[in-house]
Design a protein around this nucleic acid. Structure first.
Lengths: 88, 88
DNA sequence: TTATACTTGGGTAATTCGGGTC
DNA sequence: CATGTCCGAATTACCCAAGTAT
């Protein structure tokens, strides 16, 4: 089925996180947050995913996370939390 | 397999992409998305094509989810070569 | 036939993009 | 290393009126 969640614009996500839209764009470019691109090139973000990030997604042990742009491994680590888009 | 051949109206596609119906019409006019024209001049879009675009089938780099199961779908889809000449 | 909802077209703001810099 | 701001350019959003679709 469809993901069923609405899509948010960079400005919306930026307002939710209290950051600049440009910062949100960088998160998407770094792969830290999933992004859907419109045929025109603009990005759209999943409401559920943004929400999970805002909630803190149950990450209690926030370990320090820094250098990560180099995704060498298959997947696995990197993530303070499952930044995956939860589909419910 | 005709399940994915349903035709969607500009309003439907616009709602899926979280954009204005006018923008969808512009995509069709620019050749970024296939469109069928009704005798009256209105446009209709193929559900399969829109779905593929939403999934981000054209994504290669960013938004690399790590904890995402590599779902190897058997159906490669369709492809009539959607004349996608879009790039930014 | 009438009626309502939607789509079309052009034009003008607002937003976003990408890169570069601090 | 991450974030905020600058610029130019592209894309998108909302305004109008008229026609089509159901």
């Amino acid at each position: 089925m469809d993901t069923g969640d609405r899509l948010l614009t960079p400005g919306e996500v930026a307002a939710l996180f209290r950051v600049d839209p440009k910062t949100v764009t960088r998160w998407a470019a770094a792969g830290r947050i999933g992004s859907i691109r419109t045929p025109g090139g603009h990005r759209r973000f999943r409401e559920s995913e943004v929400r999970a990030l805002l909630e803190g997604e149950g990450m209690l042990d926030e370990a320090e996370e820094m250098g990560k742009p180099r995704n060498v491994g298959p997947a696995a680590s990197t993530g303070p939390g499952p930044a995956n888009a939860g589909m419910y």
